[in-house]
Design a protein around this nucleic acid. Structure first.
Lengths: 213, 213
DNA sequence: TGAACATGTCAACAGGTGTACACAATATAT
DNA sequence: ATATATTGTGTACACCTGTTGACATGTTCA
C-alpha cells in the first residue's frame, strides 16, 4: 500500500515533494526528446537525485505514474476551459481572442501539453486510452456549447460532435506545431494567425451547413 | 560501407530479402504497441530469426532503418496520390468517393500508415523531422491542386496552405482513429461518414471564404 | 520519550542491451 | 574451380535495466 502524506521534510529543511519531482523529471526527459515508453525508472530517479528503489515509495511502476500525469495534465486544461466559460470572450474578434488565449495558456504550461500531445499516440496502450477518453469528453463538452449557438433543427448530436472534433483537431495541430520541432521559423503570431483562419473557415462552413440544401 | 545486393539466396532455396524482413519486423513490433524508440535492435533480429550482429550487414543502426522506413511509407502514399490525380474522381459524390478511396488505401497498407502516424510525434527527432517535411510537401502539392479549382484572387498562397493543412489534418485524424485503439465501436463506414462530412464542411467554408466581406 | 510511519540508502540479482571481432557459409563471376 | 563479395554465426565485453530485502534516517503523534 502506498499512501502519500506530505508531512515529512528533508533534513536540508527544503520542502521537497519528491512525488512532484518525479512528475517533473518525466516531463523534463520527454522535453529532451524521449518518448514516455523509452524513459527508464532509473533515469527518472537519477534526474531527481534519489535512489532507484525510492521510486516505489511513490508509484508501483512507471505506468501508473504516466496515468496520473495524464489526469494531472488534463486538470490543467479543464481549468482553462472553466475560466473561458466563466468569462466568455465578447466582441468582434471572438475567434482571434479565443485562439490567443488558448495559445497563451499552452505556452504557460508547455510540458503538460507536450506530454499529452506525445503520449496520445505513444506506445503505452493504457495511457493512450486514458487520453483518448479525456479528449472525447472535451469534444462532448464543446458539442453542448455549440448546441446553444446553433440551430438544433439543422444540427444533429452526431453532427455537432463532428464539428467539435474538427475544431479540437485543428487546435491540436496548432499545439503540435507550437511545441514540437518548431524550428520551421513559424513564430507564435503566425501560428495564432493560422489557427484563427482555420477556425474561421470551419465556422463559416458551419454557418452554411444545410442551408445549401 | 554497406551495399545491398539481392543476389544471394539462402540454402533453403527461399528467396529471403533480409532487409525487407527487418522492415517488416519493425512494423510488426510497432503493431504490437511499441513505439519505435522502445524497440531494441536485438528484438528486431530475434523477430527475423537472425543473429544480432547480422543486423549491421543491412543498417548501421536502428535510426537509419527508421528513416528508410519513412521514405518507404511515403512512397506508398505518393503512389496513391499519383493514382488519384491520374483518374480524378468525377460526379456528384466526389468527396465521399475520395474519402472511400483513401480509407480503402489506408486499410490496404495499414502498417505503413500506422508507423507514420505513430512516429510523427515519436521520440526520435530525425525521424520526426523527416515525416514533417514529407507532410509539408503533401500540403504544398494539395495547395497547387486547390489553386486550380479556386479563385486565386481571393485565395493567397498562404491561405491555400491553410486550407490544405486543414484538409490533411482532418484526414490524418481519420487515419489515427482507423488504425489505433479502434475499439470504440467506430466501424469503417462511420469513419468514412465522419471524414466526408468534415471535408464537406471545410469545402463549404472555403466556397464562402471572403465572399462574406 | 517512545512507537509508528514515511522516506530514503545500499548492495545484489538476473536479465536485457549495443557493439566488436574472428570465423563460417553461401552465392556470384571469371 | 577458384577467388571474391555477401551474409550469416558465436562469443565476449561492459553497461544499463527493474526489483528485492535489509537497514538507516527523519517526522509525527500519543
Amino acid at each position: 500500500m502506498i499512501r502519500i502524506q506530505k508531512k515529512h521534510r528533508r533534513k536540508d529543511n527544503k520542502t521537497i515533494d519528491t512525488r512532484q519531482a518525479l512528475f517533473n523529471a518525466v516531463l523534463e526527459l520527454m522535453n529532451r526528446d524521449k518518448s514516455f515508453e523509452a524513459i527508464s525508472l532509473r533515469e527518472v530517479t537519477r534526474e531527481v537525485g534519489i535512489n532507484p528503489s525510492a521510486f516505489y515509495r511513490h508509484f508501483p511502476d512507471m505506468n501508473t505514474l504516466g496515468l496520473e500525469l495524464v489526469s494531472l495534465s488534463f486538470k490543467t486544461l479543464r481549468q482553462l476551459l472553466k475560466d473561458v466559460r466563466a468569462n466568455p470572450v465578447q466582441g468582434s474578434e471572438v475567434i482571434r481572442k479565443s485562439v490567443e488565449t488558448f495559445v497563451t495558456y499552452v505556452l504557460a504550461h508547455p510540458r503538460h501539453f507536450h506530454f499529452v500531445i506525445r503520449a496520445r499516440l505513444g506506445g503505452v496502450a493504457t495511457i493512450r486510452a486514458e487520453i483518448d477518453s479525456e479528449l472525447r469528453l472535451l469534444v462532448s463538452e464543446l458539442s453542448t456549447d455549440l448546441a446553444r449557438q446553433l440551430n438544433t433543427d439543422t444540427w444533429s448530436t452526431e453532427e455537432l460532435k463532428m464539428l467539435a472534433g474538427l475544431m479540437i483537431g485543428s487546435m491540436t495541430r496548432i499545439v503540435e506545431q507550437l511545441l514540437i520541432d518548431n524550428r520551421h521559423h513559424q513564430n507564435i503570431v503566425e501560428l495564432i494567425d493560422l489557427g484563427e483562419k482555420q477556425l474561421r473557415l470551419i465556422l463559416l462552413g458551419a454557418s452554411q451547413w444545410r442551408t445549401h440544401s
